[in-house]
Lab assay of single mutants.
Amino acid sequence: MTVLPKDIPGDSLKVTVGTANGKPGDTVTVPVTFADVAKMKNVGTCNFYLGYDASLLEVVSVDAGPIVKNAAVNFSSSASNGTISFLFLDNTITDELITADGVFANIKFKLKSVTAKTTTPVTFKDGGAFGDGTMSKIASVTKTNGSVTIDP
């Protein structure tokens, strides 16, 4: 049996954390987006972790974005102690894959008090994996961190 590389060099799934701005007490939304989904033969499963400074940001909610089908079954998240974990699994293993680019999740943060303008990162942590529509590992994932700026 011969195994051929399935990824064209330079191609990767792009996962990007967005940015937001606000004043202390505001609730802002930071999107997590996927790009080049079709090039990577869709997404059938993924789990990953984001870190944030809990002294500056309070997670209000984490909701599935419009590219997630049947989110009540296929999407899960949790947030505590400065870490947000995400889990997606197409429970049907074929019919509810992520097949389009767009917003995977929206994180709502309540901004805490600061004395001066502060930009705090929302960054990928170690761990996690992504699988394509056949549940094979997506070897190349380009992750881009985001941030939230609090301006009193």
Rank of each mutant, 00 (worst) to 15 (best):
V60P: 06
G127S: 03
L4F: 13
V122G: 05
S80C: 05
V17P: 10
E96H: 00
I107M: 11
G102D: 06
S76F: 09
K6H: 12
Y49A: 01
P9F: 12
G51M: 12
F109I: 02
V122I: 06
T134S: 07
V17S: 09
Y52N: 09
A105Q: 00
L111Y: 03
K108R: 06
A139Y: 15
G51R: 13
S140E: 01
P24F: 10
K6R: 08
S140P: 10
S136W: 15
V17L: 13
P152L: 14
T27E: 11
T118E: 03
D151E: 15
A105K: 01
V60L: 08
A79F: 15
A20H: 09
D151V: 15
N145G: 10
F109K: 00
N21D: 11
I84N: 02
G133K: 07
V59N: 09
T29F: 10
D36T: 08
G128R: 03
N91Y: 15
V141R: 03
I138R: 01
K14Y: 14
G44D: 03
P5E: 06
V28H: 09
V59K: 08
G65Q: 09
V68R: 02
F48Y: 13
K14I: 08
N74F: 00
P5F: 06
F88E: 01
G146C: 05
D132P: 03
T94I: 13
V59L: 12
N70C: 14
S78T: 06
S85F: 04
V60A: 10
S85Q: 00
D126H: 15
G82M: 15
A71H: 11
A20E: 09
L56Y: 09
T118G: 05
D126R: 15
V141Q: 04
V148M: 06
P152V: 14
P121V: 05
K117S: 05
A100P: 05
A100D: 07
T144P: 06
I67V: 11
G22W: 08
F130Q: 01
S61K: 13
T120Y: 04
M40T: 12
L111S: 04
A139E: 02
E96K: 04
V3S: 10
F104A: 04
L13C: 10
V141S: 02
A105M: 00
M40P: 11
S147K: 05
I93L: 09
V148F: 04
G18L: 13
D36L: 12
F75M: 07
G25R: 11
D132V: 03
T99P: 05
